[in-house]
């Protein structure tokens, strides 16, 4: 699923900023953008003011983020401060401006042949799953989700997945299941494997989801992350190796890639 982006970047206003556990959620007004980006598509973001001059004299390039929600001309995004780009973005509040390009890439395809949607992810992988849950719920089926987080502070981000019935796992056991999200996913697949798994999360988690789905012969769509300079196919920096050989660009051929096309999810 791919909604075309208006040509070029546009200047948009942050309409609110909220802290949700370890995450910062920004809402931006995007009156010029298409009203219905496809769940799993992403936007390139940079601040208009002071993009650069942070730690190590960065950031310089825009950063790619899947949208969390798109409603009535408002987009929302979720960040965790993990580097110079996300640090600057996480500082923003209502009234500040962003450069925004998108929606970009190809999003999720909804299930067919009666399979149920099973959402599996965690950490900053919540947004594309939340956007997908909204689509599925609007079609009349509230999906099941399993989410993994580091600890209770991060697990607060699970509330952002409004339109799914979510079960949470944490690495430290501070909330929910003490263990890995793939353990919750395995239980779900044992209960009913006639499913399509939709996943987004850190590379290690995505790889575990991929391997588990392959083992159960369950189709999976993985929303991948890769360092990219442009987001629209220009730089060729964001490639992942394919099972059949060669590479595809995460920005234009993904970010959602069928797990069956990969031998593994790269570590970075």
């Amino acid at each position: 699923m791919r909604t075309l982006a208006p040509l070029g970047r546009r200047r948009v206003l942050v309409s609110r900023g909220d802290d949700v556990g370890a995450y910062r959620v920004l809402q931006v007004a995007d009156p010029q953008g298409p009203p219905l980006p496809a769940a799993g598509q992403f936007y390139m973001l940079a601040t208009v003011a002071r993009w650069g001059g942070g730690d190590d004299e960065r950031p310089y390039l825009p950063r790619a983020f899947s949208f969390l929600s798109a409603r009535r001309g408002k987009l929302s995004f979720m960040f965790e401060d993990v580097g110079p780009g996300t640090r600057r973005l996480a500082e923003l509040d209502a009234g500040e401006e962003l450069w925004l390009t998108g929606p970009l890439g190809a999003g999720f395809r909804t299930p067919h042949d009666g399979r149920r949607a099973l959402l599996a992810g965690g950490g900053v992988g919540v947004p594309p799953l939340a956007a997908l849950a909204t689509v599925l719920s609007s079609h009349g089926t509230r999906p099941t989700a399993v989410l993994g987080f580091r600890d209770e502070h991060h697990a607060a981000g699970a509330v952002l997945l409004e339109d799914a019935d979510a079960t949470v796992a944490t690495d430290d056991g501070s909330v929910g299941h003490h263990g890995l999200v793939t353990e919750l996913l395995a239980a779900e697949l044992a209960r009913d494997a006639h499913a399509v798994v939709y996943s987004c999360g850190p590379p290690g988690m995505l790889e575990a989801v991929r391997a588990l789905c392959a083992e159960h012969d369950v189709p999976a769509q993985l929303a991948l992350e890769a360092g990219m300079a442009c987001g629209f196919g220009a730089c060729y920096g964001c490639v992942v190796p394919l099972r059949e050989g060669g590479y595809v660009r995460v920005c234009v051929d993904g970010p959602v890639i069928d797990a069956a096309r990969l031998d593994g999810v790269p570590a970075h």
Binding site: G52, Y60, Y236, V239, G245, H268
Partner: peptide
């Protein structure tokens, strides 16, 4: 096919 990733590094400016 091009080089194996990673292919990019953000430098100073």
């Amino acid at each position: 096919a091009g080089n194996p990733p990673p292919r990019l590094w953000e430098a100073q400016a």
